[in-house]
Amino acid sequence: MVPFALAGDAAFAIALLITWLAGAPHEWVMICLAGLLWGIPGTLTMVVHDRERKRRRALTHPEFRVTG
């Protein structure tokens, strides 16, 4: 799920840049900024969760190997 979260953060960052440079109404710029700012802690939470899930899986299933 982390790649999807990163893609969402990137989409909000691009949308923020476009709306800001295009001189869009203030509300649209703030919506893009809010999406980006809410997405960052969500992405970090998902990264930590995935890391812990892989660690737990390796402890309970020694034959399990994480590639990549």
Rank of each mutant, 00 (worst) to 15 (best):
H49V: 06
I18L: 09
P25E: 13
P41K: 00
F64M: 08
M1W: 01
D50N: 08
D9G: 00
A22L: 15
W28E: 09
I18N: 03
W28Y: 13
E63G: 13
E63A: 09
D50F: 02
C32N: 15
C32Y: 12
L59R: 12
P62H: 02
H49N: 06
R53S: 15
A10T: 11
F64A: 14
I18Q: 04
D50Q: 09
W38E: 03
P25Q: 11
V2L: 10
R57V: 10
W38K: 03
T60D: 09
R65A: 08
I14L: 13
A15Q: 06
L16R: 08
H61S: 14
A10K: 07
C32E: 08
M46N: 02
I14W: 05
L17E: 11
R51C: 02
V48F: 04
A5R: 04
R51Y: 01
A15C: 09
T43F: 00
L17W: 12
V29F: 08
M46V: 02
T43M: 06
D9I: 10
I14R: 05
L6K: 05
L37R: 04
R56C: 12
R55E: 05
G35Q: 05
E27I: 14
W28G: 03
E52W: 10
V29Y: 02
M30Y: 13
L17Y: 07
G8E: 14
A24S: 15
T67A: 08
L44C: 05
W38I: 10
G42H: 00
R51G: 06
F12D: 12
E52Y: 07
H49P: 01
F4Q: 14
I14A: 13
A24H: 06
F12A: 15
V66G: 01
V66D: 13
V48P: 00
H49R: 11
E27K: 07
G39H: 04
A11N: 14
C32G: 11
F64T: 07
L6Y: 00
H61C: 10
W20M: 13
R57S: 09
M30F: 14
A5G: 10
G39Y: 03
R56I: 09
G42K: 01
R55C: 03
A15P: 03
V2P: 01
V29P: 04
G8W: 03
A5T: 05
H26E: 15
L36I: 05
T43C: 01
P41I: 01
T43A: 03
M46K: 00
G42D: 03
D9E: 06
V66S: 13
I40F: 10
